[in-house]
Amino acid sequence: MPVRIEADKNLTTAYLSGEIDHHSCVFIRDEIDATINRLAPLELCLDFMHVSFMDSSGIGLVMGRYKLMHSLGGRLRVRGVSPSTMKVMKLAGLDLLAKIDCKGEKR
């Protein structure tokens, strides 16, 4: 399973794992959006701790979830990001949209 979701009205956390690319993105997106649309939580946290690879498809995933949370008046947080994934995220300026915690940082 590339995503496991823990959710309540305040916080929904999506634990992503494995490789995030165009192939795996569709499933992850649908799983997360189903929960968000049902619960409209105040905060969505995307946990990248167990993500081993991400290409620009992951940027679309994060940006799309940012827009969805924004439209519901909620916040997006991203955590557990590895240096290589951070490099892709910074290229897209995602660090300007959401709070991003890297791997090993206290939270």
Partner: peptide
């Protein structure tokens, strides 16, 4: 819809 439009930018930068 979901594509960020950054494919070539990533290739160029990496």
């Amino acid at each position: 819809q979901e594509r960020a439009g950054l494919g070539f930018a990533v290739m160029q930068s990496f």
